[in-house]
Design a protein around this nucleic acid. Structure first.
Ligand SMILES: [Zn+2]
Ligand SMILES: [Zn+2]
Ligand SMILES: [Zn+2]
Ligand SMILES: [Zn+2]
Lengths: 144, 144
DNA sequence: AGGGAAGTGTTATATAATAACATAATGACT
DNA sequence: AGTCATTATGTTATTATATAACACTTCCCT
């Protein structure tokens, strides 16, 4: 999926969810899309500052938080970063694989696995928040 | 296991691993043990400052990082915190459940799922490093 | 004793995130 | 169109988290 159709789909996605992908939010999503893999809030902020002269952290964080809430991005706690979700349409739980060597990021759908995991946690009375799991390791290219 | 025997076991654990639980590291571990659940670096720092008058972040972070490396603590990325591991002896790869509300921590066995997880990641050619999985959510008491 | 390695102290700074309040845009309803 | 609540964005300041860099000490081996 190219960026333009991604953005169009994202816009529709938000509409269906009863909120709006405003110009600012859309633009910040575009900035994130420019990167491969994990993106930091302050990288986006720097991009925005380069464009507009001034921009403050809340501007970026609000938009990023919105995008996470809509499922367009995933937060990667372990790296203080964000990754684009390429299949936000389906109701999935992501499993984010980060290569320790080359930094490449891959998200695979592990709904089945995570669903089973949820059952286990519920068995001990724990209500796990919907979240993404992050695993570090070596990607296909690097461990070959 | 009470704190004294935990500390003694921790000391042995480090020795077996070829390093030392120094007085400072031990003391910081003691400070962490004073809390239930997730502890923040700056909480420990404040405790240390209360005791010694002055203390700087690196003092605390170095010790915490050491303790994580030895498996005595687990890092909780999602909360920028640390939790005590109560079974560092066994070579466990458990599932750590952290309550977002009360900070309570529970580790459950998830060995069968780690196998399944490995299969999922290997299917895409990713060699995941052995690690603990951490989930945040609401504990039995808090979501009732 | 000499000398390297590991540990700790100290100062400064980098990085990440939010609080609080002001202003602007939107849209529903008269 | 005018009112008004709601949402979104701008702006300033601050808090929270983590590390760099360098000095000094302690420990241990020879
Ligand atoms: Zn996703
Ligand atoms: Zn790689
Ligand atoms: Zn553990
Ligand atoms: Zn709780």
């Amino acid at each position: 999926m190219n960026k333009q159709s991604y953005l169009a789909a994202a816009e529709q996605h938000c509409l269906h969810r009863g909120c709006k992908l405003t110009a600012l939010r859309r633009h910040i999503l575009e900035l994130v899309l420019e990167y491969d893999g994990v993106v930091k809030a302050y990288q986006v902020l720097a991009d925005l500052q380069r464009e507009r002269g001034v921009a403050a952290p809340p501007t970026v964080y609000r938009a990023l938080d919105f995008l996470v809430e809509q499922g367009l991005l995933h937060k990667v706690d372990a790296l203080n970063g964000f990754v684009v979700c390429s299949h936000f349409e389906c109701n999935h739980h992501g499993l984010i694989l980060v290569c320790e060597q080359c930094g490449r990021v891959e998200e695979i759908d592990a709904s089945q696995f995570l669903g089973a995991l949820k059952e286990v946690t519920e068995a001990v009375g724990f209500e796990s928040r919907e979240q993404n799991l992050l695993l570090t390791g070596l990607c296909k290219a690097c461990h070959a």
